[in-house]
């Protein structure tokens, strides 16, 4: 499979994603500069984490108008697979490819640590190798990951099973204690209605090798590779 990893000014997790895709998963992957347009030949586009344009206006708000985003939007509308991680998720929200918005963490601080997540939908392109209800570990690293949507949107997300990952206790319960940033309904990751665009705050690329303390994130990429092959 061929992955494109999109690099905005201020993107910082591009190297990490490329390394996991190439070295750990043996896939073809190349960085895509944000000024590129007319992308072709990719099986999946990844919007990695970082502080695109310093996140100076709102997270993702300026990157959303980068030349490459036009193509990303078209690509997603044609059904191409898109993953937005952390800042990438924020950009997808700003671009309207996913519903909702991000607020500052309710603690008002940046938080970097491992969290436990419950897989709420194991039937998406990105989660087919997890078990439904399985609790997995991945790190988060963000200052604005407090997911918000109005009540109709939330009802739709729930009704259409668009919520893929939720912050949960090691036993799989949704508690305030285990919701690190105050996200609505403990939401950590969602897909669009069609199921081809995933946005998540946790960093699967940081949990893809045992040497770094966890491998639960790797299965997310493997799910996609598996899903698209079959």
């Amino acid at each position: 499979m061929k992955f494109g990893v999109i690099v905005f000014p201020g993107t910082k997790c591009d190297h990490d994603c490329l390394q996991v895709l190439r070295e750990v998963l043996g896939q073809e992957a190349r960085p895509v500069w944000h000024k590129e347009t007319g992308l072709a030949g990719f099986d999946c586009l990844v919007l990695p984490g970082g502080f695109s344009y310093g996140d100076y206006l709102r997270t993702g708000a300026i990157a959303r108008f980068s030349p490459v985003m036009e193509t990303v939007i078209q690509y997603a509308e044609r059904g191409g697979a898109v993953i937005g991680i952390c800042n990438g998720f924020q950009i997808l929200l700003e671009a309207g490819l996913l519903p909702g918005a991000m607020l500052r963490n309710r603690t008002l601080s940046f938080i970097c640590r491992d969290v436990t997540l419950r897989v709420d939908n194991a039937q998406t392109l990105f989660s087919s190798l997890y078990r439904a209800g399985e609790v997995i570990r991945m790190p988060i690293a963000h200052g604005e990951g407090n997911y918000y949507a109005d009540s109709e949107t939330l009802a739709r997300l729930l009704g259409r099973r668009q919520i893929v990952l939720r912050y949960a206790s090691p036993e799989g319960e949704l508690t305030e204690r285990d919701n690190p940033n105050g996200s609505l309904a403990s939401i950590a990751g969602i897909v669009n209605e069609r199921g081809n665009v995933l946005g998540l705050m946790p960093h699967p690329e940081r949990a893809s090798e045992a040497a770094l303390g966890g491998e639960d994130g790797r299965r997310l990429f493997e799910s996609l590779i598996h899903s698209l092959k079959t």
Partner: peptide, 14 residues
Amino acid sequence: VWEQYDHMVRTNTV
């Protein structure tokens, strides 16, 4: 203190 720092980015921190 250190949970306010991204101590993992670049995936080298063992």
